[in-house]
Write a protein that binds this DNA or RNA. Structure first.
Lengths: 152, 152
DNA sequence: TTTGTTGCAAAACGTTTGCAGCCTC
DNA sequence: GAGGCTGCAAACGTTTTGCAACAAA
């Protein structure tokens, strides 16, 4: 169900953003974007840094710097789910989805719900211009629920 | 529209929780709960610690410890909105509400929406037992929108 | 040539932890 | 009396920052 978007298109969006904001188009920035583009699922700065290490030399500071830029141009979404590292995920070619977070083991799953999506997206505000949103549902996954039940 | 809940009732809930989990009912814990109860709006560990300093001596470590307990028994909700400090808010006597966050100035506002609330709360999952949820809408508040417009 | 960006390392910062003494239970 | 809890300070771990060298514009 996800639209196929090529790396070239993503790169174009990033280039436009950099140009508009008078930032430089450095090879490091594109290298990082490319690794994110080909990574599946949530990641954090450290995971990304380690992936890079194997075939492209960048500093952690540059990774953070680039994540910041990508977030500003809405190519990635940042989640702060309480773990130590901030989590990121691609924001292109993904269908809108929401997050189930187990309060016990911390595992994150995704789900989609048209009714919820429509309810949120159709909401208008007089003094607020929405750009995107995050919905987190907290609770117990079935595994932890069983564990806690047996522990009693 | 918010139901009036007295401190005595809150205290009772906390006491039950502590008893059930074999935690001790220390004066520090109740002192912290009481300050949270009488504080309006979002707060963080540091704000709370400073409020305490004026009339009750507790360490920051105890503040964090107690916030953790209060979160476990669902008397407060923790938000990690990307600022440096984690934010908390009371979870009792509050109508369910959602958050508008300005991506530019970081200001947080609350709003309620029945349609959204119902859509989320009526959702059932086969392998997940929901306990609570957080919805964050990101965008620009009217003030920042104007500022950015004029800056062009 | 100008100046934004990089890598490196050190610093910053909120939060957690270790420990001795205290106080619920 | 036993052991969970407190205060204190030091440690932790992620993120940010300062700075000199570099390279995009």
């Amino acid at each position: 169900m996800k639209e196929e978007i090529s790396y070239e298109e993503i790169k174009e969006i990033f280039t436009e953003y950099l140009k508009k904001h008078h930032h430089r188009k450095t090879p490091e920035r594109y290298a990082i974007l490319q690794r994110i583009y080909s990574y599946e699922g949530h990641f954090n700065a450290d995971i990304l840094y380690n992936i890079m290490q194997s075939d492209y030399r960048v500093s952690l500071a540059t990774v953070y710097n680039t994540l910041e830029l990508l977030q500003e141009c809405r190519l990635i979404i940042k989640h702060q789910l309480g773990g130590q590292f901030a989590q990121y995920e691609k924001a292109f070619g993904n269908t809108t989805h929401h997050h189930l977070i187990c309060s016990h083991c911390g595992k994150v799953k995704e789900f989609s719900d048209k009714q919820i999506r429509v309810a949120i997206q159709s909401r208008q505000f007089a003094h607020f211009q929405m750009s995107h949103y995050s919905l987190y549902l907290f609770g117990l996954c079935s595994k932890c629920k069983d564990e806690l039940k047996h522990a009693k």
